[in-house]
Computed example of a mutant assay.
Amino acid sequence: MRVGLNLTLQYPPGEDPGRALDDHLRLVDAVRAAGWDSVFVAQHYLSEEMAHLQPLPLLGRLSAVAEGMRLGSGICLLALQHPVDAAEAYATADVLTGGRLVFGAGLGYRELEYDAFAVPKGGRLSRFTDNLDLVKRLWAGEAVDADLPWCRLDGARLSVLPVQRPGPPVWLAANGDKAVARAARIGDAWMINPHASMTTVERQLALFRTARAEAGLAPATDVPLMREVVCAPDRSTAAARARRHLAAKYAVYKDWGQDTVLPEGDRFDADLAELSRDRFAIGDPADCLRTLREWTRRTRTTELLLRVHWAGAPIQEALESVELLSTEVLPYL
């Protein structure tokens, strides 16, 4: 099993973005030195409550400092992109990383983002699937034709191809059951979100595996599991940090409507103690080891992607969490 850092690069509005970047690069340096395997960066637009650096420039920056590590988008909001631009840009990212890129993509859920790009509600899914098909065909070096409202191609070929052939692995984010089944059919893996309860995840993983088998596809070789982790020297410190920062993040997520795309009954309207149960790993190293061991066993995880920092939290707390995880938790998984 590989272990990666889910680096969201969110910071409070008004904070110096250069300082936020420097802090997060310290975090990447810490996990690289500790032997972690990967770093994934996320994407949002117009996130006023939590400012957000964009993933593609970050992947270029990380390719220079995360030597030997796998890098990925977690996720690219592909329906909001032009497929030629996405194919060219992420092919370039694969070159920059020496063929170590994972292309994580998803449909997204924020109305604000779709409105900003003038993507109508009724056409979002088809735009996402069409874009993904075009990106994969362009990466493969095909001469591609397309006649879509947002993209017209006549025998187009990429001039820069990704190092990985026929292209980087495609991990698709999904929340609802239909989206999970779709990810099974058109992706290489389901990028399991960090906010669903593990009971939901376990049920949906069975759905994912069944959908692949019914489509005549081999079982996915990658099972990436994203989780929120607050690891501190003692339980009370971990709980206090989670209340200050993790709870605040999920309050914003609730305002954004993120939990409305989860299956019925999986919502963010509980207090932190209730919300954390079967969802977050919060505690001392023994608590985190016990929780993560159980989750990876239940899911047969191949890549555990941990988020240890949230907007407004001191980076030193995240660095302490990484040290404890690296020395007292991960070696025993």
Rank of each mutant, 00 (worst) to 15 (best):
L138V: 04
L138F: 06
L138G: 03
W139R: 07
W139A: 05
W139G: 10
A140K: 09
A140F: 08
G141A: 01
E142C: 04
V144Q: 00
V144R: 01
A146W: 00
A146V: 03
D147G: 07
D147M: 05
D147F: 07
L148Q: 04
L148C: 06
P149V: 07
P149W: 05
P149I: 05
P149A: 10
P149S: 07
W150F: 13
W150T: 06
W150I: 09
R152I: 06
R152L: 09
L153A: 12
D154F: 09
G155C: 04
G155H: 03
G155T: 04
A156H: 14
A156R: 14
R157F: 03
R157H: 05
R157P: 04
R157L: 07
R157V: 07
L158G: 09
L158R: 09
L158C: 10
L158H: 08
S159G: 13
S159W: 13
V160D: 11
L161E: 13
L161S: 10
L161A: 14
P162Q: 10
P162C: 09
V163Q: 01
V163W: 08
Q164C: 12
Q164T: 12
Q164L: 11
R165F: 02
R165D: 11
R165T: 13
R165S: 14
P166R: 06
P166W: 06
P166I: 02
P166Y: 03
P166T: 08
P166C: 05
G167S: 15
G167V: 15
P168H: 15
P168D: 14
P168R: 11
